[in-house]
Write a protein that binds this DNA or RNA. Structure first.
Length: 921
RNA sequence: GCUCGGAUGGUGGAAUUGGUAGACACGUUGGACUUAAAAUCCAAUGGGCAUUGCGCCCGUGCGGGUUCAAGUCCCGCUCCGAGUACCA
């Protein structure tokens, strides 16, 4: 008798395709439920065991919701633009579209082997012109919109032009990079060119000269979230700052809404925290300082206006536009040297040498707005151009960075908030009483902040101000394999294409490399112009362009005239459950929310937030194995004996290690250099060492799901991935536990079968005991699935199967509901059993078994009895017994006597249906 | 540095509201079945002491505390992971 998973799984996967079991359509008669996975980038390496983890969880949840009568949208697609395919193209000349297509095929096969309930009719591929048409279309909308801070939403750029024509930009409250003001008359007097130039400062998709993260190795610009520790996230190449003309998205306009929107979301605290930090709201004041020898006033931003009297110097960034203006003749050489040095430092150096204090005095002074004192102006690279105004007032007594700087350059440190000891270190806390601060003296920090701002406002030299760390997203990439911008240049000014000219398809190029002049690969394309001969943009969009709105396209994936129809979005609304990795916290998940809010402002989507609930699956780490070679020899010593020799630890392929025991023959064949390896064994075995590391090819610890499916079947893989541990936790992959799940599946199968693998079910009435087992399981599974505790869910199935085996229960009334219960977890197994039990329809729409409390009713409860908090014995008592009787029964119990002997009972705690604790002394 | 997680047997983990710590598995050991292997089944399995039976003591990273009762709550540490990094 054997459970033949290979045939059964094959059979049902085919059945699902033939019957279109997972195809969904709008169905007004049912409530909708939208379960989304973060779609993968189809890499050449195929799936490893870590990828499907989240997909399995979401698949279980989708199937569960379907059993409960929901119309479930559970699509899958591919984030298909990206660097690896392009790098491969550069090496081999193969068009990235071809590589991508092949990889997608492979991914789909692998995914289908796991038995997912995706509706492939809704597949979305970001590199497909049918799809990126709409990415381009949204870009044109962003280009034609500005952000009105008064109405707090995006509006059409024509409305802005109308306002300019009436009032100029004087009264406008907009998210913009425009600094100069102009009147209506001035606006009207401008040339078309000039007007377009001004509008660019308001558009939500805009072009500007900005300092960008340039990665020479990749030959492209990267967004902030694509750079970590001064290196590119993809590839780990160095990144430098460079000023270039680039497209950006004005994400910062939405900073406050992105922050506010999170409150209602059912996301993990850690993820919300990450986004909050990334958005980085800080409330403070903007203050203008007069300059001693110039008309201009220097604007600074501070979160501590209360400490104004402690400002003993000012600092501007080395890139600040006033560096030359403020530099005095005798400081010139020094300043120039410093600025050159600071600019040439790589981002990486600048980051790793944070503690190194450097700077130079300009020779100029500002005038303190309250005291009238002269305040020296310094240049230092700890002040960044990109945040605030690129200039600060330095309060060394209450800011650790200013403190370090003042100490190094011997600048006075004046305490203005009491509470610390500024002779030792700065006192940064926002508690204490103001001193040395004229009219602020005696106030608490919070009050002083308010009073200082009041005074600044009265003097007309300052204002309350909110700043965000969130930067606009740089949207240009100097690469080939991305969406072309729907943009052409007319007299040097960018214009967007009309929807009828979309999609603008990627042109053919002879090589996937920059041109000799250093232009991006698209510049190689022949006749890369509009029909009218205007040159097209040669940059392409970044990876996050296509992934920002893909969840919307799933709702109506084949629509040729619209991004998605109003009917579709009104029905599917938003994503109810989104499962994916936390690594997208500051990238995709911010961009997507921005994208959605923009479309919400346009009235196209119905929910302001796209992802109601979000679950982060933890990473699956690798478990590496090691062998120990005695240095300079070809002798390998077993783990336990390694300390007796001078050894070198070497990674060994986990596929030739079983339960940490090395297959020495396989090892000799593994790599030529080990062909003559000799082994020093322990107990006749070679035991390997192990360690949890990243899952990576180079560490020989990659587990491929295909091999496991071949050996154990998809249902076992599904259950095992869930059984491994909590979904949100990172955990090492260790194959040895899979046997236990495999045994469980076979055991489950055996409940329904007799020796010859022949179905044998009894139609007898179930016993009380059997009903209890079933209903206990129903209850447990319901609770576990709702709190995404899939590991305990699987163990509940195991307990159930163990108990039913013990009871030798093969009754239909028990096993039939159980089959439905397990269907979301092990769909192939469930379908087969369901059919064997005589059903002609797929199990996917079978009604989920209902929990009946009555079956769990007990007449007795087995009380654990503790003495002074230590559990000593159990006592069986009627469940409805009153506290006092319980007390009596416990004290009278035979087992209790030895604990009571010679002691006085001080207190008895009885918690009904929980515990009894007797306090003796 | 800051923010957020986490630490429970040989291993993965369970304990949902403060109430029997170690569910469920893996592994290990012993046994049954078998010519043998596989598969399956049974038993033991946190540490220590006692094994003449009942048993007893210790035990959830460390040190304190609250409580009849703490893995769970509070205070102070240590270590590990993730995010972030001169954000004024």
């Amino acid at each position: 008798m054997e459970y033949n998973f290979a045939d059964i799984e094959q059979k049902w996967q085919q059945f699902w395709v033939d019957k279109k079991t997972y195809h969904v359509e709008i169905d007004e008669s049912k409530p909708k439920f939208y379960v989304l996975d973060m779609f993968p980038y189809p890499s050449g390496a195929g799936l490893h065991v870590g990828h499907p983890l989240g997909y399995i969880a979401s698949d279980i949840y989708s199937r569960y919701k379907r059993h409960q009568g929901f119309n479930v949208l559970h699509p899958m697609g591919f984030d298909a633009f990206g660097l690896p395919a392009e790098q491969y193209a550069i090496k081999t000349g193969t068009h990235p579209a071809i590589t991508t297509e092949e990889n997608i095929e492979r991914y789909m096969t692998q995914l289908n082997n796991i038995g997912f309930s995706f509706d492939w009719d809704r597949k979305v591929v970001t590199s497909d012109p049918d799809y990126y048409k709409w990415t381009q279309w949204v870009f044109t909308k962003l280009f034609s919109s500005w952000y009105n801070n008064a109405s707090d939403k995006a509006e059409d750029i024509h409305l802005l032009v109308q306002i300019f024509e009436i009032n100029g930009n004087i009264k406008i409250a907009a998210a913009c990079t425009q600094e100069e003001t102009f009147t209506a008359d001035e606006w009207k007097a401008m040339s078309e060119q000039e007007q377009q130039g001004i509008l660019m400062n308001y558009r939500l998709a805009y072009q500007s000269h900005t300092a960008v993260n340039w990665c020479p190795e990749l030959g492209t610009v990267l967004a902030n979230d694509e750079v970590k520790d001064g290196l590119s996230v993809r590839g780990g190449h160095p990144v430098v700052k460079k000023t270039m003309k680039q497209w950006s998205l004005r994400v910062s306009a939405y900073a406050q809404r992105l922050l506010d929107g999170m409150e209602k979301l059912d996301w993990s605290d850690s993820l919300k925290e990450m986004q909050k930090n990334w958005i980085g709201k800080s409330v403070g004041a903007t203050v203008f300082f007069r300059l001693e020898e110039h008309e201009e006033k220097m604007e600074i931003f501070t979160t501590r206006p209360d400490t104004l009297f402690g400002a003993t110097f000012m600092v501007i960034a080395p890139e600040h536009e006033w560096v030359t203006m403020l530099t005095k003749e005798d400081q010139k050489t020094e300043v120039e040297e410093y600025v050159v040095w600071a600019k040439n430092r790589s981002e990486r150096e600048r980051m790793t040498e944070v503690k190194k204090v450097s700077g130079v005095f300009t020779g100029s002074y500002a005038i303190h707005p309250f005291s009238g004192n002269r305040v020296p102006i310094w240049i230092a690279d700890y002040v960044l151009t990109s945040y605030g105004t690129g200039a600060i007032m330095a309060v060394p007594a209450h800011d650790s960075r200013d403190y370090a700087f003042a100490k190094k350059f011997d600048i006075p440190i004046v305490e203005v908030v009491s509470g610390g000891d500024i002779s030792v270190e700065s006192y940064d806390a926002k508690t204490g009483v103001l001193v040395n601060s004229d009219f602020l003296n005696g106030m608490k920090v919070k009050q002083a902040v308010g009073e200082a701002i009041k005074k600044l406002r009265a003097l007309g030299i300052g204002e309350k101000q909110i700043n965000f760390r969130l930067r606009d997203a740089i949207f240009s990439r100097q690469r080939y394999w991305g969406e072309p911008f729907p943009v052409y240049y007319k007299d040097g000014m960018p214009q967007v294409l009309n929807i009828k000219d979309l999609p603008l398809e990627l042109p053919a190029v002879d090589k996937y490399l920059p041109t000799e002049k250093g232009e991006p690969p698209l510049a190689r394309a022949e006749n890369w112009n509009t029909k009218d001969g205007y040159p097209l943009e040669v940059d392409t969009m970044p990876g996050f362009a296509g992934s920002s709105g893909y969840y919307l396209r799933y709702m109506d994936p084949t629509n040729q005239t619209q991004y998605f129809s109003p009917e579709a979005v009104n029905y599917w609304q938003d994503v109810d459950l989104y499962i994916g990795g936390a690594e997208h916290a500051t990238g995709h998940l911010i961009y997507s929310r921005f994208w959605n809010k923009f479309l919400f402002d346009l009235g196209m989507v119905v929910k302001e937030e796209p992802f109601k609930k979000l679950v982060n699956q933890g990473m699956i780490q690798g478990r590496s194995n090691f062998v120990y070679r005695i240095k300079g020899t070809n002798q390998f010593v077993s783990f336990g004996l390694r300390k007796e020799y001078d050894v070198q630890r070497i990674h060994v392929d986990i596929n030739i290690v079983d339960n940490d025991v090395l297959d020495t023959e396989a090892f000799r064949k593994w790599q030529p250099e080990f062909a003559n390896a000799e082994f020093i064994l322990e107990d006749g075995k070679y035991t390997c060492g192990w360690e949890v590391e990243k899952m990576s090819k180079s560490l020989y610890n990659v587990q491929n799901p295909d091999e496991l499916i071949e050996k154990y079947g998809a249902d076992t893989l599904r259950l095992y991935e869930m059984f491994l541990g909590p979904i949100e936790q990172s955990k090492p992959w260790d194959t040895k536990g899979i046997e236990g799940v495999f045994r469980f599946i076979k055991k489950f199968w055996r409940l329904f079968h007799k020796q010859e693998n022949e179905l044998e079910l009894s139609d007898a009435e179930p016993t009380k005991e059997e009903l209890k087992v079933l209903h206990k399981t129903i209850k447990k599974l319901h609770e576990d699935i709702e709190r995404f505790s899939f590991n305990t869910g699987v163990s509940a199935f195991m307990i159930c199967a163990n108990e039913l085996s013990e009871l030798k229960c093969n009754k239909r009334v028990i096993l039939e509901p159980l089959t439905v219960l397990i269907a979301p977890y092990a769909p192939h197994l469930a379908e087969e059993l369901w059919q064997l039990m005589g059903h002609n329809e797929s199990i996917v729409d079978a009604t989920y078994p209902e929990f009946n409390e009555a079956h769990l009713k007990e007449s007795n409860f087995s009380y654990p009895v503790s003495f002074n908090g230590k559990m000593r014995f159990m006592i069986d008592l009627p469940i409805d017994m009153g506290k006092e009787e319980v007390e009596k029964a416990v004290l009278a119990a035979e087992e209790a006597q030895r604990w009571l002997e010679g002691k006085t009972v001080r207190k008895i705690i009885v918690v009904p249906k929980r515990i009894v604790n007797v306090v003796v002394g």
